[in-house]
Write a protein that binds this DNA or RNA. Structure first.
Lengths: 346, 1513
DNA sequence: ATGCGTCATACCGATATAAGTCCTAGAGACTTT
DNA sequence: TGACTCTCTACCGACAATATCGGTATGACGCCA
């Protein structure tokens, strides 16, 4: 995937996406990367973890622009592996293909234990300049994975234990609006608050044909895909976002998670109704301290306001002890089998 | 055009909406979309003329009475006589719908009145267009009447009249009239005036004799039986009026008879004896001790004259007192029969179970035993009768052991005279009736008194004492009262208006006025305001609560506030920790349960009150003529409005949610917490319950959680204290089944069939019931219900001893401690760690929940058993929709697990005799698990183990414990005890045995299959063929599998080598068993995997592939062994698929999701040999969200017309059919056992009777099986299908090259051209007609397409059929001139068509076989390949990247190829394409449905099994 | 009296919710350019 | 003119996801001829 073979990969990957949605426009990719000034930030001993490279356009652009010391492609799809292999120069050690599935957490441990990558832990004062993560999350499961990556940002586990690792994620539009919805938006939900709380997330490459209800002021894309053949499949809009984990801690993280998850159940009802379902007597006990917010809808609330609620919740003496609920599947085969066995006994 | 895509039958009905919600008060128009084409295309437009009565805008009929509102109902679309043939059982054809059906509104089969047929027009079982609203109105009418809201009731009545049949209407009016006259008993003019008015308003209404009877009743009360007034009225309408005992009551009739001097011969002979009884009773002694004492509480407590709170409490006190009085009265009665003392003779040492001593079951126990402890004066006569009486243990006995009493009385040593015995039984019977009634009318107020008592005790003990739960509950109920009163007041405020709009306007005015006055007087905030604020919520919700109250209000008013409070609390506490929610429950379930409890409470109270009204001073249980009594009971139930229909679940949910929200608001528990900041301990009061939500795998679920303070009180032993007493075993014989809704308990109504949200099932059932087709079914079920049971006390003692240890033992789970979740990993732990932690938590949680619910379940069983110790009881039965019988009373019954079964035995004993002793031994061997040997061997086995048997019986817990090794240990113990008792006699054959002895069918499903197919080999395997030793299917299958595996092992197959020594019967058993149910490969694989998992020597990683391998082998073996069965199974499945995927021409059924395709509407329906119609209920469900006070709740809408779930219809039909046969077999056997005076019980394919009667039963059940299968059932089924579904269309393919196919293609093109032209024209028209109306988006079609969609073609075919059946010759001619694919196909001879289809199918098959090698059986032959692939994949993952070179080219190409093609375009479902979807060599076409020919029947003669010893063994 | 336009509202269906996916297999239904 | 994706995986008995949004139908109401 050296610069020299760029035309060939562009040509070869035309209208290929291996079941995912991918960008096809190499030049636009390059342009976006330059606008992000990635090459300037990632200079020294750079490792790129490149999940689901698929047709390889975006990977090629990253590779050619950043020229990383180590670029590992996590691609479980045999077809895609075969395709990508054509463009990998085995003699060089900078670009490797690893066939394990990026969906599995073990993959990320394995590439370390197998010495495919050697991550450098970087202090949290700045974005880790030695490690960049990119992933194509354009499938239906991609959204799930995306949310989990964000959870990892919050929990500082997974690759985020190496410091604040920037993530460049290709996501569906439906996911995008969930992540980037601003207060007052119809799409404002738990994930958007969480994203806001733990990361600085920007829209990098937008898609022209999607008319989404985003705060365009706040999320001005660096590049826009305009032509039908910029992506494949043509009518399946995706976007590239850049997720920069924040340095600061979230206070009372457990409570924060519980509060936002619960409050967004009744997201267009006044907060007082939402408070009531936080715990027995919650409205009576916490209501007074949150009086100014009581009539606000969770969907309209800002991050700071959620922090206020979290704080009040943390200070509430009678808050529930168990914040994570489990449920039992109705799979009590114990009893059932004892009944049926005895009618047809052995 | 759009009309084609509209489901014409389901237009919303505005007039009904008015009555239900009355959101509006003026003119409505109900428009029906036209179904017929309005095109000018000559051949097609004829439809318009053909059916002038269809598809028009109905005229609006103005009805002044409805505050100017105009109501109209869509006229029926399909009332053609063509589609109204009668439902018939194919074997005894044609019977017209009975005209004597009791009025009912849940279902209706009135052809021609707003109805369409359900699954087939062949049966005249029709679906009322507004079924849902119809039944809602029905219940609403009753509710309004009960609460005295006559204005609205009339409103409802008028809406109802618009689309009800005249019988239902008359019944509705009569109920109105009855209630009106009740409340105006002193003035009969009121009701007469009203009647005149209503007759004018509803011209359809015609009074019947019941109407007259009501007026007569009113007159009697008004004029105090003044002869002149009454006699003339009777003369005017004949003495027929007097047959309505259920209206007038016996007392009244007697008086009338006396006053007017009417000869007794004019009275309905059925009830003459009752009237006579009244006449003979001297006036003063006419006091009934047993009839309801709480009845005044039931008569519309919240009607205009509502009892005050104090009054109702006082009444509760009174109730308890009267109850005691009543009991004493009965005691006196018993005593008067010369059995002065019924003081318990029961055994010592029946330990009390550890349980919260409070209400529920305790109260029942109290009822049951209530008067055992009284007075010493009863010692005497009984002592004379029973010599052992002196040994009686007086302490520790809190119940009467009737069982022992009777045994001793009947024992040879007993000196009781025949007369004494007779008197005893008579007393026993009436005592039981009284107690049964008391149990069914649960004493809610009684519970409250107990709570109150507890509360007061707590007070005395001082504040420091921990409050007992009861005290808390009392406080809650007390606190709920003012809120409930407030709610009642608000409801009354709302419901006094006839429309919500009026109510809202009035409210607005009131608010405005209040605001005006408030501005002057500064508002002071009072407690009441707080209440108001809570109840009313935010101002913006007021409109909502008004319309809400308008809906649920009338229902809530039916039960008084005391009862409401109590039952809410009881229900909620019962539900704690259900639904997999820790320390809580699902909101949906909670609100529905509470709502249902309210409904139950009301209905039972109402029934009880009516009974009192009708019987007057007579005591029904003491009358000699019990047949008249029960006939009258039935009549009462039938005429009772509330028995006909259940409340809509939306109403239940709303009522329940309101009550729960009140409870949440008032129920508080003390709490302590730590202030996170200061660290101080804070105390306070917190709500005991709170409403929240949880997520279950991405789904939101509403939950009601209990405060953990409260959950400390609640253990697995608690819920049984809150048990609803309505569905317990009965102390008297159940009311026999007489119709589909008459039978079972005394007060509560149950249906004879458990239906699954499917009115269609009810419709068919009702038709059969009304038609008198179910007599055999009734007979069988009644035998089951008449079997008398009692508790096996020795077993109970052992069990309760074990239970009280709290430890796990056999089937008894231990007392689960608090849930201990593992420590959560730190947040920054690897996601994998977190994931496995979560998984672990979930697993522990699951286990805990399962354990808890098991503990609860066992506790229920034991508590019920304890309550019924020494009692004689009965288990009323009904059926599932296939006809299999189940006891109505849950928890403790003989269908339960081993433990439940062991706790039950026959009340009646029978001398063993020689054969009985032998069977008792065999039974002991069977339950021990030694059941695969010959009878002689089993007998011998027990003889050899007689020492173990004795030891088990005498030292169950401290002996060798031989019984515990049995397959069914508890039943083994019971058998050991029985056998020991018998053997202890000098002649064991003299032993009077009560133990049920079982005879089980060996793989009963396969037995039926073998008989159906006449399959000799199969018959042999399942013991249909006489044999010296029992055949064991599972061992046989295992043997074959073993052979396969050995063969593979020979060839070096690694898995075969691994497995060949590890096969066991157990591994294959479940799979063989479930084969009958159509288990799929993956399901069977999972079963086998779980069996292999515990096997030694199989690595965990290999379990999967082993199970895959083995499952293939097992399937092969089963198939080879039961070839005949599989042929039948396949035929059944294929037939069901054809039916379920058939297309109907009689109604328009576009798919909801894809307007280009019709939905499949026909369920598989068949009639069992006993005449029971069975409808498979599997349809797509429509779900409704109902907004309740707490949250919105999702309910299924059973009334929605939805397409069938074809897949489920297909897969479930074979097992359902076979189950319907085994059910028939059972019921036939039961009926015959009843005739031969055998006690009989069954668990589907396990038949029970006394040991002594086993020989008789064996003959009976064999004969029944032979009778069942002597006719060719499958042929009969095919015949029935042909008749019922013959008019439908099925999809078939014929070769494209055939002449016919070419003609069809041509015809389609022609039709498409006409169709498109007409479509365009219509479009134009619709633009000019109503430019704003959007077109139905359902009809998605590509405008340019020249092909017809499937839906379009069906529409055209339908037109043709309609034309042909038109009465106009002109239309018929037009129809004949139409050339459609169907007309072309029908021009062929059937044989020609068959040949064409066969040809097409064979080419298709060839292609598919060529392209796929997917059959698992086939791939078994190369099962090595899967192994290899797995290995290489694993290797690829482990090795370095370079290994990618090794990936075979062809795989890559394949993937790449797929990717390429993924980008290619897709296509529209045009009919032509539908044809070529499978192969371009054939054309798809709709033909008349014809089920396949029945597979040839084998030569096995079912009569042979008469000699088969092990058929059932 | 009728008709029309506008606004409010009820109803119905669609969609999001959470966040490891459940180790695999195979048939069948469904969709939609 | 097929193919791809999605679903579901044993019968019965027991049961049951919810909040919100947007489009459409329908009715109320006002207005004016």
């Amino acid at each position: 995937m050296s610069v020299g073979i760029t035309p060939s990969i562009v040509e070869a990957s035309f209208r290929k996406s291996f079941g995912r949605r991918s960008i096809l426009n190499y030049n636009l990719s390059v342009s976006a990367i330059r606008k992000m000034k990635l090459a300037e930030y990632y200079k020294d001993n750079v490792t790129i973890i490149d999940a689901y490279p698929g047709n390889g356009i975006w990977s090629a652009a990253l590779h050619n622009e950043i020229k990383p010391a180590n670029h590992v492609l996590l691609e479980p799809l045999v077809g895609a592996q075969k395709f990508l292999k054509q463009f990998i120069d085995p003699s060089k050690n900078t670009l490797k293909l690893w066939p394990e599935d990026p969906f599995r957490w073990a993959t990320y441990e394995n590439i370390v234990t197998e010495k495919v990558i050697t991550p450098i832990v970087h202090p949290r004062t700045e974005i880790n300049p030695h490690l960049l993560f990119t992933c194509n999350l354009s499938t239906i499961q991609g959204e799930q994975l995306c949310v989990q990556f964000l959870n990892c940002v919050m929990n500082r586990n997974w690759i985020q234990k190496y410091g604040r690792v920037r993530m460049l994620l290709w996501i569906r539009y439906s996911t995008l609006v969930k992540l980037l919805a601003t207060p007052g938006s119809k799409r404002r939900g738990r994930v958007s608050v969480q994203t806001e709380a733990c990361s600085d997330t920007r829209l990098i490459i937008d898609n022209k044909m999607a008319d989404l209800t985003l705060d365009k002021q706040k999320y001005e894309p660096l590049e826009v895909m305009t032509k039908p053949n910029d992506i494949f499949p043509t009518k399946a809009p995706i976007a590239l976002i850049q997720v920069d984990p924040l340095e600061a801690d979230i206070e009372q993280l457990d409570y924060f998670e519980y509060v936002i998850r619960t409050l967004f159940i009744l997201k267009t009802r006044p907060l007082k109704e939402g408070l009531a379902i936080l715990g027995p007597g919650a409205l009576d006990d916490m209501g007074p301290s949150l009086r100014p917010l009581l009539n606000k809808k969770p969907a309209d609330m800002t991050l700071e306001e959620f922090f206020l609620v979290t704080k009040a919740f943390g200070a509430w003496p009678f808050k529930p002890e168990i914040l994570h609920d489990f449920y039992a599947e109705s799979d009590y085969s114990l009893h059932a089998t004892s009944v049926s066995n005895s009618s047809g006994r052995t | 055009m759009k009309s084609i895509y509209k489901l014409s039958g389901i237009n919303r009905n505005p007039a009904v909406t008015v009555a239900l919600r009355s959101s509006s008060a003026s003119t409505f128009t109900c428009s029906i979309h036209r179904r017929a084409f309005t095109s000018s295309a000559a051949a097609l437009s004829a439809v318009k003329i053909q059916s002038p009565s269809r598809g028009f805008k109905t005229d609006s009929t103005t009805n002044q009475a409805l505050s100017g509102s105009t109501t109209s109902f869509a006229s029926s679309l399909h009332s053609d006589p063509l589609f109204s043939t009668s439902f018939d059982r194919s074997k005894q054809s044609s019977s017209s719908p009975s005209s004597t059906s009791p009025p009912s509104s849940t279902t209706s089969y009135m052809p021609g009145l707003n109805t369409t047929s359900w699954s087939s027009p062949h049966d005249s079982i029709n679906r009322h267009q507004f079924l849902k609203d119809y039944s809602h109105l029905w219940t609403l009418l009753e509710a309004c009447l009960e609460s005295g809201n006559f204005e609205r009731a009339e409103h409802v009545l008028i809406s109802f009249s618009e689309h009800s049949d005249s019988k239902d209407l008359t019944m509705a009016v009569n109920n109105y009239l009855l209630r009106l006259s009740e409340l105006n008993s002193k003035d009969s003019n009121v009701s007469q005036t009203w009647l005149r008015n209503i007759s004018r308003k509803i011209p359809k209404f015609s009074p019947d004799t019941i109407t007259r009877a009501i007026i007569l009743k009113n007159k009697c009360l008004h004029y105090d039986y003044e002869e002149s007034k009454i006699a003339s009225y009777i003369r005017q309408y004949s003495t027929d009026i007097l047959k309505h005992v259920d209206v007038l009551g016996i007392d009244m009739i007697a008086k009338i008879v006396k006053v007017c001097d009417i000869p007794l011969s004019d009275i309905d002979p059925q009830f003459r004896s009752l009237v006579q009884a009244v006449l003979e009773i001297p006036k003063e002694s006419n006091v009934d001790a047993s009839v309801d004492t709480t009845s005044d509480a039931t008569s519309a407590p919240n009607a205009t004259t509502e009892p005050t709170k104090q009054a109702s409490e006082a009444k509760a006190d009174k109730d308890l007192t009267t109850q005691r009085e009543q009991q004493e009265a009965i005691n006196t009665k018993l005593a008067s029969f010369d059995i002065d003392s019924i003081k318990s003779l029961s055994k010592p040492g029946v330990e009390n179970l550890n349980a919260v001593d409070s209400f529920g079951l305790k109260a029942i126990q109290h009822t049951l035993s209530g008067f055992a402890s009284n007075s010493e004066q009863f010692n005497g006569v009984l002592d004379k009768i029973i010599p052992f009486a002196s040994e009686k243990n007086v302490n520790n006995t809190n119940y009467i052991d009737f069982y022992k009493m009777v045994q001793q009385m009947e024992s040879p040593e007993s000196k009781a005279t025949l007369e004494e015995k007779e008197k005893f039984y008579e007393a026993f019977e009436s005592y039981n009736i009284a107690r049964q009634k008391t149990i069914e009318r649960r004493g809610l107020e009684g519970a409250n008194l107990k709570w109150k008592h507890s509360h007061e005790q707590m007070r005395q003990a001082g504040a420091l004492a921990l409050k007992p739960l009861e005290a808390l509950l009392w406080e809650w109920n007390l606190a709920m009262q003012p809120l409930l009163e407030q709610e009642f007041a608000r409801i009354k405020e709302v419901v006094k208006y006839t429309t919500t709009r009026k109510a809202k306007d009035a409210h607005k005015k009131a608010v405005a006025a209040a605001a005006a006055s408030a501005s002057s007087a500064t508002s002071k905030k009072t407690a009441e305001d707080d209440l108001l604020e809570f109840v009313e919520g935010e101002n913006e919700d007021i409109d909502l609560s008004i319309s809400d109250r308008f809906e649920y209000g009338p229902y809530l008013l039916l039960v008084n506030s005391q009862k409401l409070g109590i039952l809410t609390i009881l229900e909620i506490l019962k539900l704690v920790s259900t639904g997999g929610i820790q320390e809580g429950m699902r909101t949906a379930r909670a609100v529905l349960s509470v709502g249902k409890a309210v409904e139950m409470e009301y209905k039972i109270a109402k029934a009880s009150k009516r009974e009192k009204d009708i019987f007057g001073g007579l005591s029904p249980e003491s009358l000699s003529d019990q047949s008249s009594v029960s006939a009258l009971h039935d009549k009462i139930k039938e005429s009772n409005l509330s028995n006909q229909v259940s409340w809509p679940s939306s109403i239940r949910a709303k009522v329940g949610s309101l009550l729960i929200s009140l409870l949440i608001h008032v129920a508080k528990v003390p709490v302590t917490g730590k202030d996170p900041v200061t660290g101080d301990v804070v105390t306070g009061k917190a709500p005991a319950f709170f409403h929240s939500y949880q997520y279950q795998g991405g789904n939101r679920v509403g939950v009601l959680k209990v405060h953990n303070f409260l959950s400390k009180y609640i253990s697995g032993d608690t819920p049984s204290n809150f048990l609803q007493p309505q569905l317990l075993p009965m102390l008297v014989k159940p009311r026999p089944w007489k119709s589909w809704r008459s039978g079972g308990y005394i007060y509560s109504t149950s249906s004879i069939m458990r239906v699954k949200d499917a009115p269609e099932q009810i419709a068919y059932l009702r038709a059969a019931s009304d038609n008198g087709d179910l007599e055999q079914v009734y007979e069988g079920l009644n035998v089951l219900g008449d079997t008398a049971w009692t508790i096996n006390t020795p077993i109970f003692k052992v069990v309760s001893k074990v239970w009280n240890t709290g430890k796990e033992f056999l089937e008894i789970p231990n007392e689960p401690g608090p849930l201990q979740a593992p420590q959560a990993p730190p947040r920054d732990a690897d996601p994998q760690v977190r994931r496995s932690w979560l998984r672990e938590c979930r697993k522990i949680h699951n286990e805990h929940t399962a354990k808890y619910s098991q503990r609860c379940d066992t506790n229920y069983k034991l508590e019920i058993a304890r309550a019924y110790l020494g009692e004689r009881f009965y288990l009323p039965h009904n059926m599932d929709f296939r006809g299999r019988a189940y006891p109505l009373s849950p928890h403790l019954n003989h269908l339960g697990n081993d433990l439940s079964r062991s706790l039950l035995m026959f009340w009646e004993g029978r001398r063993l005799g020689e054969s009985g002793l032998r069977w008792l031994k065999i039974h002991t061997a069977n339950v021990f698990g030694y059941d695969k040997f010959s009878f002689e061997e089993r007998e011998q086995f027990i003889d050899e183990h007689m020492g173990d048997v004795f030891d088990s019986a005498e030292h169950p817990l401290d002996g060798e414990g031989w019984w515990q090794q049995g397959t069914d240990p508890w039943q083994t113990l019971a058998a050991c005890m029985e056998l020991t008792n018998a053997m202890s006699l000098s002649n064991p054959e003299d032993y009077i045995s009560h133990l049920p002895v079982h005879q089980d069918g060996t793989c009963n499903g396969l037995q039926h299959y073998a008989a159906l197919g006449g399959d000799i080999e199969g018959a042999r395997q399942v013991n249909l063929v006489p044999s010296e030793r029992p055949q064991d299917v599972y061992s046989k299958v295992l043997e074959i599998v073993q052979r396969y595996v050995n063969a593979d092992a020979e060839e070096g197959h690694p898995l075969a080598e691994l497995l060949k020594d590890k096969l066991a019967r157990k591994v294959v058993k479940q799979t063989v068993m479930t084969t009958v149910y159509g288990v799929t490969f993956i399901g069977a694989r999972a079963q086998i995997a779980s069996q292999l998992k515990d096997k030694e020597g199989i690595d965990e990683t290999q379990v999967y592939e082993c199970s895959v391998y083995l499952t293939r082998k097992v399937f092969l073996a089963v198939r080879s062994l039961f070839e005949g069965a599989h042929l039948i199974q396949d035929w059944l499945g294929d037939s069901a698929a054809k039916i379920a995927k058939s297309v109907r021409l009689d109604i328009d059924t576009p798919s909801r999701r894809n307007g280009n395709r019709p939905d499949f509407m026909s369920s598989v329906i068949w009639t069992t040999p006993l005449g029971l119609p069975i409808v498979q209920p599997y349809r797509e469900q429509k779900r409704l969200q109902v907004a309740t006070r707490l949250q919105s709740v999702q309910l299924v809408d059973p009334y929605a017309l939805r397409g069938v779930n074809a897949r489920k219809q297909k897969t479930a039909f074979p097992p359902n059919y076979v189950h319907s046969l085994d059910a028939s077999h059972m019921l036939l056997s039961a009926a015959e056992c009843g005739r031969q005076n055998l006690q009989f019980a069954s668990v589907h394919d396990s038949y029970w009777t006394h040991a002594a009667d086993i020989d008789k039963m064996n003959v009976i059940l064999r004969n029944a099986f032979i009778n069942l299968h002597e006719v060719d059932l499958i042929a009969q089924l095919k015949n029935e299908f042909d008749q019922r579904y013959g008019g439908m269309l099925e999809y078939a393919e014929i070769p494209r090259h055939s002449v016919i196919a070419q003609r069809i293609i041509k015809a389609r093109q022609d039709l498409a051209a006409i169709y498109r032209a007409r479509e365009e024209e219509e479009e134009q028209q619709s633009w000019t007609d109503a430019p704003k109306r959007g077109r139905k988006k359902k009809a998605k079609k590509s405008a340019s397409s020249t092909n017809l969609t499937v839906a379009e073609e069906i529409a055209i075919e339908r037109e043709r059929i309609d034309l042909l059946s038109s009465p106009e010759p002109e239309d018929v001619a037009r129809g004949q001139s139409m050339v459609t694919p169907l007309s072309i196909v029908e021009s062929l001879e059937p044989e020609e068509l068959d040949a064409l289809i066969k040809e097409a199918n064979s080419t298709k098959k060839q292609r598919s076989v060529k392209s796929k090698t997917s059959s698992f059986i086939k791939s078994t032959e190369h099962s090595g390949s899967g192994y290899d692939k797995q290995a290489s994949a694993a290797a690829a993952a482990e090795e370095d990247i370079d290994l990618l070179d090794d990936v075979e080219e062809d795989i890559i190409d394949e993937v790449m190829g797929d990717e390429e093609s993924g980008a290619t375009t897709k296509k529209t479902p045009k009919l032509d394409s539908l044809a070529s979807a499978k192969s371009s060599t054939s054309v798809g076409v709709f033909i008349r449905l014809k089920v396949d020919a029945v597979p040839p029947k084998g030569t096995f003669d079912v009569k042979e099994l008469r000699k088969s010893k092990y058929f059932f063994s």
